[in-house]
Design a protein around this nucleic acid. Structure first.
Lengths: 180, 180
DNA sequence: AAAGTATGAATGAACG
DNA sequence: CGTTCATTCATACTTT
């Protein structure tokens, strides 16, 4: 297809996510955008999982410094990484939650002969246990913005244990584009 | 978490809309990546051609719900579809316009694609929130198609537990993140 | 079957 | 912060 590759250097097919640091030495001829190594990603992920979500400038600096050992990295990369990771956690939760499992119970007219195979709707998305007590273990020296923040989303902590139907019965189809 | 690794499901060589529309026997147990049926693609394309470019979350969910009849689909699939379709439309357009100095003697209007009619270069902003008119092709029932939608933005008072309070998470694990 | 193409998915970067 | 753009990776599909 002869894509663009217009502009900057190209990359030579690196693998990402292949656990165990598959020699993803992005160091070298790498320009354009930051391509984190598996080690870098792991550390960042650990930090995130530990509860870090919006690191301060100082934290970003420290993280960046530590991560620079594994490869080229800048502070802004760390900043963006956390921004994106946090945003996407939320975004994904929103998109994957109410997706399928449509209850469009329209009139049962004609079934024609559609081939609804075993449409496995929703592979039982697991619900991670959310902590109600944010305990920030690190950075107790300059907890600036991390004040009492645990009092904003207290609407309901109900973990809807919705079981995914073992057998999804398909409603008769009647699709119009007027659902928007 | 780790949206990365989407597991690894054994690929089962599925068919996608094997040729002419007819039986796009949606694959049965296919995990890997979403494989849209021809009907799904048609609806999405119609929506796109109607001017929809970046559907909102609500729209995405509605579309996904409607499309779930034709086969397995999730909201994120719809999201990605529009993102990709828009990006690639732009990419193609950008590539065929600038640079490339040679005027090909050949016809510029090759086969192209039947998927470009509107949305040309121009400040004319395409409609973002549009009213869809039925363009169904395999649905002969014309019962309630002319419904006035008015300008009611009733937000579908569905009681979805929506709070996402996944703030801090403090697993008992201990990392060597002492450099912070 | 290999090579090429189309496209779903992921994510860095940045905008508003 | 949520949303959007750009680029890239992975894979389904097509062509040779």
């Amino acid at each position: 297809m002869d894509e663009g590759m217009s502009g900057f250097c190209i990359k030579a097919a690196s693998f990402r996510g292949s656990g165990g640091g598959g020699g993803n030495g992005n160091n070298g001829t790498k320009c354009g955008r930051w391509n984190p190594t598996t080690e870098q990603v792991k550390v960042l992920t650990d930090l995130f999982r530990s509860g870090l979500r919006t690191p301060s400038t100082d934290q970003i600096q420290k993280i960046s410094s530590q991560l620079s050992f594994y490869g080229k990295i800048e502070s802004k990369n760390v900043f963006y990484w956390f921004q994106n990771h946090k945003a996407r956690e939320r975004q994904k939760r929103r998109k994957v939650s109410i997706d399928d499992k449509d209850f469009t119970r329209r009139d049962q007219d004609k079934i024609s002969s559609p081939k609804q195979l075993n449409q496995v709707s929703g592979p039982a998305r697991v619900i991670e246990t959310l902590q109600l007590f944010p305990v920030n273990s690190f950075d107790e020296s300059e907890a600036e913005k991390m004040r009492f923040h645990a009092n904003e989303y207290c609407k309901e902590a109900t973990a809807f244990a919705y079981r995914v139907g073992t057998e999804m019965d398909h409603p008769p189809l009647d699709l119009r584009l007027s659902f928007l």
